[in-house]
């Protein structure tokens, strides 16, 4: 549990950080994934650039019709922020499921999604929320949708030298019901399956349904077929069950020590139904 030697810089400004990153340094945020890997010597970066001290990255604010969350906002910040709780409660609810208290105190939203663990909690919610990610390089800045950001296992749209500046989450329309339901792996707490749901009714019918899924496959995704099946429906138990049964359709489901692919697929259906029920109960 002893890492290899590395250089460490805590830059004073974002520009300084980006300059170092452009030269091949590795960004360090909460360190909840990177540091254990370094201690196990699975990762051996030469140079770490600590982003946590950059004030320009640590904020949560409402701006226009969206909530902007700086990359180094901790899970605790997101879980407890009045803005997030009020304007996009699904994200606060999801943050509360991440790891344990210590992890939530240290881990950051930017670090988590840049790592893109296929079983992480945030991606499910961010998919359902149709969030955007702002990526900043030394000379450029671009905004990508989370659907494009989460590419594959541990792989994102980040280019070398780029970091996440912020995550942009649309302010939830009033009356939307949301829920995050998760089966936690008992050892690590990672999601065997995590389902994030947003539903809104209008005129007694489901007008909008968004379902984000994590833990199941190589990357988080939106269960489009299930969403479509719900639109225009009243939300009866049968309708929910039918929609939930589509949540893992045509998905190459992962298998590991803790859950076979068949069981995961089954859990995804059960938890999608539960999350839909809970979200509908919360919707106006």
């Amino acid at each position: 549990m002893i890492p290899q030697a590395f250089d460490y810089t805590a830059p004073k400004s974002l520009d300084e950080a980006l300059g170092l990153l452009a030269k091949g340094a590795k960004p360090l945020a909460g360190g909840m994934s990177l540091i254990p890997m370094m201690k196990l010597r699975l990762a051996a970066p030469d140079h770490l650039v600590d982003l946590r001290r950059l004030k320009d990255l640590n904020y949560i604010r409402e701006q226009g019709a969206a909530v902007h969350i700086g990359a180094t906002a901790t899970h605790y910040d997101v879980e407890n922020s009045a803005v997030v709780r009020g304007k996009c409660p699904l994200l606060a609810e999801t943050a509360a499921h991440i790891g344990d208290v210590q992890v939530r105190n240290m881990g950051t939203i930017g670090g988590s999604i840049a790592h893109n663990d296929p079983s992480a909690d945030y991606p499910a919610a961010l998919q359902a929320l149709e969030a955007k990610v702002v990526l900043k390089g030394a000379k450029s800045e671009r905004t990508v949708s989370v659907a494009d950001f989460f590419v594959d296992t541990f792989t994102t749209a980040l280019e070398p030298g780029e970091i996440i500046r912020e995550v942009i989450v649309p302010v939830e329309d009033s009356g939307t019901g949301t829920s995050y339901q998760k089966v936690a792996q008992p050892a690590s707490g990672f999601a065997i399956v995590g389902i994030a749901v947003r539903v809104r009714k209008s005129g007694g019918k489901i007008g909008m349904a968004r379902i984000g899924v994590t833990g199941l496959a190589n990357r988080s995704y939106r269960a489009a077929a299930a969403e479509k099946a719900l639109e225009g429906k009243a939300g009866s138990a049968t309708e929910i069950q039918n929609a939930a049964s589509l949540v893992a359709e045509r998905v190459d489901v992962n298998s590991d020590l803790h859950a076979s692919a068949d069981y995961r697929r089954h859990l995804a259906v059960v938890y999608a139904a539960r999350a839909l029920m809970a979200a509908l109960a919360r919707s106006a």
């Binding site: 699975l42 663990d117 079983s119 296992t153 990672f190 298998s255 590991d256």
Partner: peptide, 20 residues
């Protein structure tokens, strides 16, 4: 080795990705 001991959760997903 270390990969097997600490990476169980991810071996399947990683193998699939490498093949892809």
């Amino acid at each position: 080795g270390t990969m097997a001991a600490v990476g169980q959760r991810l071996i399947d997903a990683t193998a699939k990705m490498m093949i892809k």
